[in-house]
């Protein structure tokens, strides 16, 4: 049996075909992870569901939504966005682990498409985000969360959340390439969690001290949360500040800004591996 690698394609179309085929092979690696470790996948999803239940029922009774409305209906859009944000950690972890174990070097020493590593990571993480959203939406519908403004706007809301996830992908890849080893990911978690809580996810910024409310309002997550609440027709939108009034615009602008900054940084960092 001959074992000759085909020559690398010279045409742009051929390179694209390699990138897509190799990217899919890399994505499939993650899918095999989910199939081989269903427990890890379920625990991950159960964690998100548990957060919804804990905040919805444990604290929900004591919370009031400005302008009235059900707290769980207020909470769920926030939780969906929060899960998009927390999955940043899994991107960082995957990148750092591959780098420190030499898997990234093995990929780089192979005649595969150079962009496939990132493309495969991106596809796998986006797929996982869709699965997370589906699980949380199912849980939400069970605790009387509702889509009030029709399926079209609801799809737009999901689009905005995945846009945020897409932007965080590049931040995650950049940070993952920066960190020396998987152990140091814990340090990033310490920064990630406050950022996740300092938002309009659990409580409306109007109810916070002025300065804290302003920070929470300008947190990119809050823009997506507010926009998604508006598109689902859930309670809790409002606020008089400019940023609160333009949440849908900002829910597009923030992710675009994050991508514009961190996509080139991530690419540069990856190329610097050969320095």
């Amino acid at each position: 049996m001959t074992m000759v690698a085909p020559a690398p394609p010279s045409s742009p179309l051929g390179r694209l075909r390699w990138a897509l085929a190799d990217g899919w092979t890399v994505t499939r690696r993650d899918i095999i992870h989910w199939i081989r470790q269903p427990v890890a996948l379920i625990v991950n999803l159960a964690f998100s569901v548990m957060l919804v239940l804990v905040f919805g029922y444990l604290f929900g009774g004591a919370m009031s939504v400005p302008g009235g409305g059900n707290y769980r209906e207020f909470l769920l859009p926030g939780m969906l966005v929060l899960m998009m944000f927390f999955s940043l950690e899994s991107t960082i972890m995957a990148i750092t682990e591959d780098k420190s174990k030499g898997v990234t070097d093995r990929f780089r020493s192979m005649p595969m498409s150079p962009s496939a590593v990132v493309l495969g990571r991106a596809t796998a993480d986006m797929l996982m985000s869709v699965i997370t959203l589906v699980a949380l939406v199912a849980c939400g519908l069970a605790v009387d969360w509702k889509i009030n403004r029709g399926i079209g706007l609801a799809l737009a809301a999901f689009g905005l959340m995945l846009l945020l996830r897409f932007a965080l992908l590049w931040l995650g890849i950049y940070l993952g390439l920066m960190l020396p080893n998987p152990e140091s990911v814990a340090a990033v978690q310490i920064l990630v969690w406050p950022l996740g809580f300092l938002t309009s996810v659990y409580a409306p910024p109007e109810t916070m001290p002025n300065w804290l409310g302003t920070i929470a309002e300008w947190n990119p997550l809050s823009s997506t949360v507010s926009a998604v609440r508006e598109l689902f027709g859930n309670p809790g939108i409002g606020g008089d500040s400019w940023i609160a009034q333009h949440s849908i615009l900002m829910a597009v602008l923030w992710p675009v800004l994050i991508t514009v900054v961190f996509f080139p940084l991530a690419v540069r960092r990856y190329q610097r591996l050969s320095r």
């Binding site: 690696r29 992870h33 470790q37 174990k101 030499g102 898997v103 070097d105 093995r106």
Partner: peptide, 13 residues
């Protein structure tokens, strides 16, 4: 290339 650590996926067979 075979590097200093086993550059294989731990979860996969």
């Amino acid at each position: 290339l075979v590097g200093q650590s086993a550059a294989v996926d731990e979860v996969l067979s």
